[in-house]
Design a protein around this nucleic acid. Sequence first.
DNA 1: AATTATATGCGACTTAGTCGCAAAAAAGGA
DNA 2: TCCTTTTTTGCGACTAAGTCGCATATAATT
Lengths: 126, 126
Amino acid sequence: MPSGKLLEEKGIKVTQARKEILEILETCTQPVSYENIKESISMDKATFYRNISKFEESNLINAIESHDKKRYFELKRKPHAHFTCRVCNQVECIKSGIYVTLQNYDIENVIIQGICPSCKLTNRLP
Amino acid sequence: MPSGKLLEEKGIKVTQARKEILEILETCTQPVSYENIKESISMDKATFYRNISKFEESNLINAIESHDKKRYFELKRKPHAHFTCRVCNQVECIKSGIYVTLQNYDIENVIIQGICPSCKLTNRLP
DNA sequence: AATTATATGCGACTTAGTCGCAAAAAAGGA
DNA sequence: TCCTTTTTTGCGACTAAGTCGCATATAATT
C-alpha cells in the first residue's frame, strides 16, 4: 500500500517526512529504532518523533521498548507478540500462536523478554 | 524471611541500605519504583540503584519497566507475568495461568501492556 | 496574492538512571 | 586495639532518548 494512501485514510496530511518514515517501516520485517534508520531519513530528530507520535495516535504503528531504553517502531499489521533480547536488544516479532486474555483488561501488546537463540548459542553477555 | 539472611545466602554483604530496600520489597504486593518508596528509605538515589543492580545480578529481584519509563522492582518469588497500564502506569502481578514457551529462547519475563480495569471503567485518559 | 493553519529545523531542555571520586564503614590481620 | 585493605555510601556532575518552544517554511483556503 502506497504510504500516501495510508496517511490520507487516517486523515493525516501527506508530507515528505511522513512518507519517508512510512516507506521505511513498510520495508522492515522487524521493528526499528530512530537510531537504526536515522541515516536513511532526511528529517530532524524532533520531526521524526513528532510524526511517530501522530502515527501512534492514529493507530498506524506500534512501539516496543527494548532493554536499551530505545523504542522500536513497526507498522501495525496483524496483531502479534514481541520478543526483546536483553543481550542484543533486538526486537523480534513472534508470529506463532501466543494468545493472552485477561478478563476486564484491554490488552494492547504482549512482550516476552529474555535471551534470543542467537545470543544463547554464542554465549554473548549483556 | 529476614532480609539479612537473604543477603547472606547470596553472598552479598549485609548493610543498612540493603536491608532497608529488601524489607520494603518484602512488604509490597506489587512492584514499586524508586519514586514510590524514596520517602521510606534513607539512602541516596545512587546507592539505591547500585544495590538494585547488585540484587538483579544475584537474581534476588525482578524489574519491570512501565510506560512512564520508570523501572518497578519486586522480590523474585514465584514466576508470573505482569500487566502494565498505559494510563496509570501501575505494574500489576498476574498470578493467573499465563504460560508462554518459545523453542530455543530463554524466557525471563512476560509483560502484558494495555489498560487496566480501573482506568477502563473510569474512562481515564493517558 | 493574502491569510490562516500546519509542519519542520534548531537548540535548549527533561528525567530516570549512572559514574567518578572522596569520605565512611566493614573486614582482616598482627 | 590499632593499622591496612576492601567495600559501600553520598554528593554532584553526567548521560541519552525523547520532548518542547519558537521562528521559519510549507501547504491549504479564501
